[in-house]
Structures are given as C-alpha cells and as structure tokens.
Write a protein that binds this DNA or RNA. Structure first.
Lengths: 117, 117
DNA sequence: GATAACTTTGCAATACTGTTGCATGAGTTT
DNA sequence: AAACTCATGCAACAGTATTGCAAAGTTATC
C-alpha cells in the first residue's frame, strides 16, 4: 500500500488530497490511505498543504526536504481546475515579524490560474 | 444582528472563527451568524483567513481594503493559544510567479507563538 | 392602519473531510 | 504450528460548513 500511494504521489507532480488519491484506486479504504499518509508525514516523506480548498493536500518532499524551516516553498492553487502545485524552486522570503512573535512555520498559498487553464 | 456581529469583530482585534463569534452571544444560531458573515464578505466588509486551524476565521477589513490585491497581509496563528492575528502593517511582498501562472489572491499564514504566550 | 411583499431568523437536516476503535487477516518470527 | 506484529476494512463519530423550509419580523403600498 505504501508503495502504491507513493507511486501515485510521485507520478502526479502536484499536491493531492486524500480524496483524489482514493480516486486513483479501485477498492481502497479512505482510512488506509489516511494512515499511510500519516506514516509518510511522520517520517518526513511528504508534506501537507492546506490550500484553503477545504481539503488538505499532500506532496512528496524533495530529498533534502526537512519539512521545516529549510524547505518552505510557495504553493499555488488554481481556482479553475483546483489543482495545487508546489513551487519548489521558490523559497519563501524571510519575514521580519513584529516584536514578540516567534516564527515556527509558514503556509503561503497563492491563488490564480495555472498554465493549463 | 449585523450590527452586533460587526461589533464583536471590531472589539476583538483579531480574526475570529464562526464558533468563536457564536460563543460571544447567548442564543444566536450558527447559521444566522454564518449568513451574516457571508453578507459581510459579499460586501467586502470582512475578509476570511484559512489559517489551517480547521476553522475559517474572519476579520474586519480596513477602510481602504478591497480584499484583493491591495490589502493582502500576513496572518499569524499562535500554536499555543490558537489566536489568529492580522499583521496588517506587513503587506506581503510581490511574488514573481513562473511563466503561465497568474496571480489572483494569496493567503500567507505564519505559525509560531504570539507575544501573549 | 391593514395587507401584501420581502427579508431575516431558527431549526433541522445534510455534506464533506478528517479521525478513531475494533475485529479480522496477512505476513513474520521463533 | 504457535505467537506475535502490523496493516486493512468497516463502521462509527467529530467538527465545520452549508442549505431548505417555515415562522417571525420588517418594510412598502395602498
């Protein structure tokens, strides 16, 4: 199962929701995939994005991705087709937070239309 | 109802979820507040943030806010208290998207701990 | 002022995503 | 083969968002 889910994420070059992954199989339980994804996340194989579409999406990490400060990149949600792309070569800029705020993590989602649409 | 909901949003200087707003009233239906917020949004009085906490949060717009390109600011989600702050004096930097992508909107959420925590 | 037309509210029901308990089953180890 | 570990499927549940509908409230019109 892990190999199959990994394949799906690898083939598609974008972030997929639990439901979208489920669609690519014939008879696999949501919960099974859910737990597989959770395992992947615990082991830093994938990262999740909440792009505001209502469903969290998952995408493979790069080899050097630590899913923390080092590999924060923009995500792009196409408002037409609903696909979410990882803009991996676009690291997010450093943010100067006001006094008292400490930075742990960030989620930068840009919405618009993608090249396909 | 609209005046009351507006007041709540105005008093609190942060983004509130539907549930949090509901808590500030004695006997008001979720759906009523929901529709009130929707009306506000349609008329660009408020903007919504999906900070990844599971619930969308709402905050008043500034007078000159058009809720589109002009007033995009960072939002800060405190991972300890769960409060979401609008960093209104921090406009988001311009993003150079790859060829083919068009910019419509953006949602930049930073997570960490806030000054109160 | 009475009636009609329209709007808002509350209730109930529903959709959707995410999540967990539990029993079964598959595969591994001893 | 028995004991063990782990993954799977089913079913149930939780939380948020959303809508249909009828009742209550408001505004307009005569």
């Amino acid at each position: 199962m892990r190999e199959l889910v990994y394949e799906v994420l690898d083939k598609n070059k974008k972030a997929l929701s639990l439901y979208e992954i489920e669609q690519q199989f014939e008879n696999v339980e949501r919960s099974t995939i859910f737990r597989t994804l959770k395992t992947f996340q615990d082991n830093l194989l994938i990262h999740s994005v909440d792009d505001g579409s209502g469903a969290v999406k998952y995408a493979l990490c790069d080899d050097d991705c630590t899913c923390s400060l080092n590999d924060l990149h923009y995500h792009f949600l196409c408002t037409k087709c609903g696909q979410t792309h990882c803009l991996k070569n676009m690291p997010i800029p450093k943010v100067d937070l006001p006094q008292g705020f400490s930075f742990e993590n960030a989620n930068f989602v840009i919405k618009g239309t993608c090249p396909n649409c």
